[in-house]
């Protein structure tokens, strides 16, 4: 069940080639989409510009519901990149599965969602929590930030508030990882079932796989939305004076 990535060692450091490759692919897709859709922007949008604007407006809507009006513009780019990064990461693993059996007979996976790896999701979550704290410091100064974030409304909650920063990282990262990883595991199980007894199981497994892929697309979209929403909620705790 556990997916084994291709690991290469360069200069004494181990690199997870699968995750790195899929992350690069994700970034390339997002940049290609954004760059391609933002050529020849017009006041009266048409074609691909509409798609880009739909995504931008969607992300703006998430921020609008959590942040004060005048702060939305400052974090729009971050939320846009984050949303697309999580969304594309969630989707990309659904397309196919490439496994190569190496010399010792272990199936090495070359294609998976970057977000099906806990280190990737926890990294994203930690990056977001660190950024929200940084933005809080940038806005209120170190002292103001500390008072606003940890001593309000009452100072005896301070230990819990400290702990919250770490639990936020864990919940944010593990929620995404769990959803996407579970989806991929089930996809793998169904594909194994399809190959188990020849043509008969293949016929039964095909619609099952399609249904689960459709559901996984839905899950992926929901998770990307939740990730951005929670990030903006955590951000609002740091940059809004109570």
């Amino acid at each position: 069940m556990n997916e084994v990535s291709k690991i290469v060692t360069i200069a004494g450091l181990d690199f997870d080639l699968t995750v790195i490759g899929m992350t690069i692919l994700t970034c390339a897709i997002i940049f290609g989409f954004t760059y391609g859709c933002s050529r020849n922007l017009q006041l009266k949008p048409k074609g691909k510009q509409n798609v880009l604007e739909a995504v931008i407006d969607f992300v703006k809507g998430i921020l609008d519901s959590n942040l004060p009006k005048k702060e939305v513009g400052n974090y729009h780019l971050l939320a846009y990149t984050l949303f697309l990064f999580v969304l594309v990461s969630n989707m990309i693993g659904l397309m196919t599965k490439i496994e190569v059996h190496n010399a010792s007979g272990v199936a090495v996976s070359y294609w998976k969602s970057p977000t099906a790896d806990p280190m990737v999701t926890l990294t994203l979550a930690a990056l977001m929590i660190i950024l929200t704290n940084y933005f809080g410091i940038r806005k209120f100064g170190l002292h103001g930030y500390f008072v606003n974030s940890f001593k309000k409304p009452v100072s005896f909650l301070m230990p819990i508030k400290f702990m919250e920063e770490f639990t936020n990282v864990l919940t944010l990262g593990l929620r995404l990882y769990g959803n996407i990883f579970a989806g991929e595991v089930l996809l793998t199980l169904i594909s194994n079932f399809a190959a188990s007894k020849g043509i008969i199981t293949f016929v039964f497994a095909l619609p099952l796989e399609m249904v689960w892929q459709g559901f996984s697309i839905f899950i992926g979209g929901i998770q990307a939305y939740i990730f951005v929403t929670l990030t903006s909620v955590y951000l609002s705790h740091k940059i809004e004076a109570e």
């Binding site: 990535s5 690991i7 997870d16 790195i20 806990p118």
Partner: peptide, 15 residues
Amino acid sequence: GSAHTSTTFTTVLFV
């Protein structure tokens, strides 16, 4: 994270 402990640092950095 127990699966590929050796690559944790590089993955975090890379992502």
